[in-house]
Design a protein around this nucleic acid. Sequence first.
DNA 1: CCCGTTTTGTTCTCCCGTTCACAAACTCCT
DNA 2: AGGAGTTTGTGAACGGGAGAACAAAACGGG
Lengths: 224, 224
Amino acid sequence: MTARTPDSARDIPEATVARLPVYLRALIGLAEDGTTTCSSEELAASAGVNSAKLRKDLSYLGSYGTRGVGYDVEYLRYQIAREIGVTHDWPVVIVGIGNLGHALANYSGFRSRGFRVVALLDADPSRHDEVVAGLDVRSFEELESIVTEHDVSIGVIATPAVAAQAVADRMVAAGITSILNFAPSVLAVPEGVDVRKVDLSIELQILAYHEQRKSVGTGAEGVS
Amino acid sequence: MTARTPDSARDIPEATVARLPVYLRALIGLAEDGTTTCSSEELAASAGVNSAKLRKDLSYLGSYGTRGVGYDVEYLRYQIAREIGVTHDWPVVIVGIGNLGHALANYSGFRSRGFRVVALLDADPSRHDEVVAGLDVRSFEELESIVTEHDVSIGVIATPAVAAQAVADRMVAAGITSILNFAPSVLAVPEGVDVRKVDLSIELQILAYHEQRKSVGTGAEGVS
DNA sequence: CCCGTTTTGTTCTCCCGTTCACAAACTCCT
DNA sequence: AGGAGTTTGTGAACGGGAGAACAAAACGGG
Ligand SMILES: NC(=O)c1ccc[n+]([C@@H]2O[C@H](COP(=O)([O-])OP(=O)(O)OC[C@H]3O[C@@H](n4cnc5c(N)ncnc54)[C@H](O)[C@@H]3O)[C@@H](O)[C@H]2O)c1
Ligand SMILES: NC(=O)c1ccc[n+]([C@@H]2O[C@H](COP(=O)([O-])OP(=O)(O)OC[C@H]3O[C@@H](n4cnc5c(N)ncnc54)[C@H](O)[C@@H]3O)[C@@H](O)[C@H]2O)c1
């Protein structure tokens, strides 16, 4: 049975969870523009969604708005950040410091959005001399000690596809419970470990599918 | 009743479209292993999905299997590739050749999966000397002529977020109708233009949310 | 040639997510 | 203070997708 959870721990729909970061980013943008209050309509426009959907999403977190007025930008921003869990930084390790790994290591958006890269690992010894974004590239063998030392629970895989499953297995064994996978491969992981994949080719192929259909439409298909 | 409409009756659900590239990749993997025939069960396992879902997805394309036998790997592979539209290469331009743009330009997966990078563009003149992955980095001003010359319909944005909307506008004006956006910003585009976004921070924050919930029992940090 | 086995293609049901529409709640103005 | 004007929060309808279950089709063995 599920443990009864005191007061928070309502279960937020997955689709809503996926949009909370978008709202958070929109709120940060509004705050930087000096906006202190916003309506659901304005925030929805900034986030690129329907305002009814936005309100329903926010209602899962609680009643943080004021009817007739709107939302306090700073307050809502904090509440969403707290709900997502990015009021403090999460330590992250990146494995596979090739083309993509370099870009990720140099990505400044990590720090500002609740994450801190604590180690860069690669299996290729010739990479171990290198310093990327102020961090040594270290041996993949150090994974376990680094995970333990920094209490890392999130790992990023940027190795070739053939190595991805083995890297994931090592990560899981070391105690990592969330994996972001950039390699184009299907990962098998135990229950309780979350995997999300980012796959450039799939995104492009989805675009290609729709693109192909657009050009078919130029020849009029007279149903109607 | 669906009459057998070999080319027209395509109303493929979006969720299915998003999985077709995964099936295609699984089939390529099977073919490389020398497998000539596979059941829906095997293919589903390779693709990491439920076999019923796989069969239903494939049924939208047509009846390409043989009952009691399974699917011919090469034949199904071709049919899916044709449906997605990657039997020939799509020309692609990448705008913003910074950290991420370099990685993308060097990514070999483009060629092998139905895409061909025809130009790398950047607004920064100091980058124009560079040659990346055998291509000159060219001025963003050349966008229109390149799009026209190569009949490009797909563009990739890898610029900072502040520049993304302006780049998208120029792309659309130049005739591009599909955009893959790596910048963390919401793009507004006209009807008929498809945008897909890849957002590292959002993926990590979704993982963080679930990670936070996992550790609810273990002594929360900073819960006030 | 016929029957049992295998596996597809499809139907049916359930669940999740989206959207509409509106009552409740708050502010401001007179 | 009271009413008019706003805007939130949510109940309900709707549509699409996931998964179980099964009938139809192909193959092989006797
Ligand atoms: N480059 C891109 O833009 C891009 C885009 C989309 C997807 N990807 C995918 O991301 C992955 C990495 O791409 P890349 O271009 O950086 O490749 P790359 O070959 O440049 O880098 C891979 C790195 O992983 C290291 N590595 C290999 N096996 C390892 C192991 N077992 N443990 C630890 N490290 C290991 C290699 O030493 C190398 O440094 C690939 O799977 C690729 O398909 C890349
Ligand atoms: N580096 C990563 O791993 C990573 C990960 C996720 C998202 N992103 C996002 O991808 C984008 C690029 O990241 P990056 O690290 O490569 O940044 P970067 O600063 O290294 O590169 C950006 C490039 O875009 C060019 N540019 C700026 N304005 C332009 C314009 N108007 N037209 C054409 N080119 C222009 C710049 O000259 C520069 O070369 C950013 O939006 C970033 O948030 C990067």
